[in-house]
Amino acid sequence: MERQDSKGKIIREVYPSEVVSIIGSLAAGIILTLLILPFQTFSILIIIVPALLSLRGNISGPFIARSSRDLIIGVFDFRNWLQNVAATYALSIITSILIGILAMILNLTVFKLFIIPHYLLILIPCISMLMSISVSMPTSTLLNYLAFKFGFDPNNVVNPLMTAVDDFFSVVSFYLTLILLGVP
C-alpha cells in the first residue's frame, strides 16, 4: 500500500485531519490572545507556554500511540493501561517541575521580572499539565477504543483529533491554573 501512495492519496488522507487539528489549535491561540495576553505577568508566563504545548506532543502523543498499538496487537487490558497512565503522570510531573525550575532560573538570570513569587513558576506548569493530561488520557483512550471498534485504524484517526483536543485543553488548563493561583 505504502509503495503505491501517490501525491493525491497523501493529500486526501492528511489534509482533512489537518483541518481538525488547525481548528483546535486556533481555539488555543484565541485563548492565548484574549485571555493570557492581558495578564500583567504575560512576559514571564509566555516562557512556559511553548514548553507546555510541546509536552502535548512528547507525553500525550506517545501515550496515544502506545494505547492504539496495544489495541491493535491485542494486548490492551486495564492493568497495562493503568501502568501507561502512571508512567505518563510520572513523566508529566518530573518534566513540569524541570520546566518550572528552568523558567525560574531564566527569570532570575535573564528577565529579572519579580512580579510573582518564584514558587508559582513551578506550581503553574505542574497543576496545568496535570489538569490537561487528566482530560487527554481518558478522551484519547475512549477515541482509540471507538475508532478500533468501528473498524478505523486508531493511528490514523486519533492522533490528529487529539492534537486539537490537547492544544485547546493545555491552554484552558493554563488559564484555569492562573485563576486558581491568583496570578496577576
Binding site: 512576559s43 514571564i44 509566555i46 516562557i47 512556559i48 507556554v49 511553548p50 514548553a51 507546555l52 504545548l53 510541546s54 509536552l55 506532543g57 512528547n58 507525553i59 506517545p62 508512567a87 513523566l91 518530573i94 518534566t95 524541570l98 520546566i99 528552568l102 523558567a103 531564566l106 535573564v110 528577565f111
Partner: peptide, 20 residues
Amino acid sequence: SIVIVLISSIIGLFSGTILS
C-alpha cells in the same frame, strides 16, 4: 521516554524565551 522528553522540554523553554 524520560531523556528525550526532558531534552524536548528544554528546547520548548528556549522557544518561550524567544517569545518573551
